[in-house]
Write a protein that binds this DNA or RNA. Structure first.
Lengths: 204, 204
DNA sequence: TAGATTGTTAATCGATTAACAATC
DNA sequence: TAGATTGTTAATCGATTAACAATC
């Protein structure tokens, strides 16, 4: 299995959403239809699909069910990925209630917070655990992924602990730039950047 | 003012976060420092900064306060952008409480929902208004931007209304692919895609 | 058949990296 | 001075688009 770029991953995920929701009634779909809905070039769509090993049918396009399944396999939606959410504020709890995660193999095991009023309670069927227990649980359960939804001032400290005890991937929802060793990956989910990029399309 | 690519916008926003939080104590910063923290090439950082019209100082780097301000100007953080949030669920309310928005000129005026138990209440100091009133308010206040945080099955219908009454930019937090005219911009905030991209960095 | 669509190659475009003179 | 850093050009790399033969 060849490595694919982040841009391809992003497009394949969108194709999947498109097949799952927007075009769920159809049995076939043409590259030009996908391209049209996502404002892409149709040959780019065919190239992406070729990466998934799916063959189309002349005059008809691709079999929706087959394409959907192949994208799932290519992107590893059924591989189980265990995750801790750190920060049980509004965003953290919104994410734990996001039911779709489990369809993509993203298994959120627990939330962590240092607010005594929250500790011990449940959100979306998951326990809110004291931050003090984080290091121990990361290493014991061998957690590699965390979702960071703490306030900005706490982000670096929590990161340092998580990294020290073995975390490798940090999905950073805080607006801070985290210092981590080269072996750790930070994915910055920066809402301000997203909004500005959206506005940038004014030149349409 | 020249148009800049979305990639540049994303990096400049991250530089800004870095200056605002991570390096707030320093008066100077070198391109190599920024590059190191964000895992980029230093000449790329210098090119980005040059786009903002900021000149550095040999042997010292850039003046933090000046660079920060120039990024704000280049990206238009002080231009006021009025927004409606549609869908007052967990994610919609999490976003309205995101205090940072106003620092970037993003002014959320109200939330919309069709749940009678929510309508009339407030969240984060903003009214939750009935969805029925959306078309009228979009055209009356001349709203161009909406944040879409409704359930997937409602996404297309709400979009059609919003577009009909004048919305031009849709920040789509639902996992659906929306059908819109070419004149309308959809920015897909797809969390699944983000997570998969993060995991993709395994080849580090 | 004629038209629609794929699969794929070659051409183009844009973004990143390498390199280095200038200079504080 | 020597070392560090910028600003910028040229080279490279990667991603997208154009084009079109194949064929259902």
């Amino acid at each position: 299995m060849t490595a694919i770029s982040n841009k391809v991953i992003n497009r394949l995920t969108l194709y999947h959403c498109l097949l799952k929701y927007t075009c769920k009634g159809n049995s076939f779909i043409a590259s030009s239809k996908i391209a049209d809905l996502l404002d892409l070039d149709d040959s780019l769509v065919r190239k992406d699909i070729a990466l998934c090993g799916v063959l189309g049918h002349k005059k008809q396009g691709y079999v929706v069910a087959e394409l959907k399944k192949s994208i799932e396999q290519k992107l590893g939606f059924s591989d189980r990925k265990e995750v801790f959410i750190i920060g049980a504020g509004r965003l953290g709890t919104a994410l734990i209630h996001y039911a779709d995660f489990k369809d993509y193999g993203i298994d959120i095991l627990a939330l962590f917070d240092n607010n005594p009023n929250k500790i011990g309670k449940e959100e979306g069927g998951k326990r809110i655990i004291s931050l003090e227990k984080l290091p121990n649980l990361i290493s014991r359960i061998n957690i590699k992924n965390i979702i960071l939804t703490v306030p900005p001032y706490a982000a670096q400290e929590v990161t340092d602990y998580a990294v020290k005890y073995g975390v490798r991937f940090i999905w950073n929802f805080t607006p801070t730039v985290l210092k981590v060793p080269k072996s750790v990956t930070v994915y910055n989910e920066n809402v301000i950047s997203s909004f500005m990029q959206m506005q940038n399309s004014k030149n349409k």
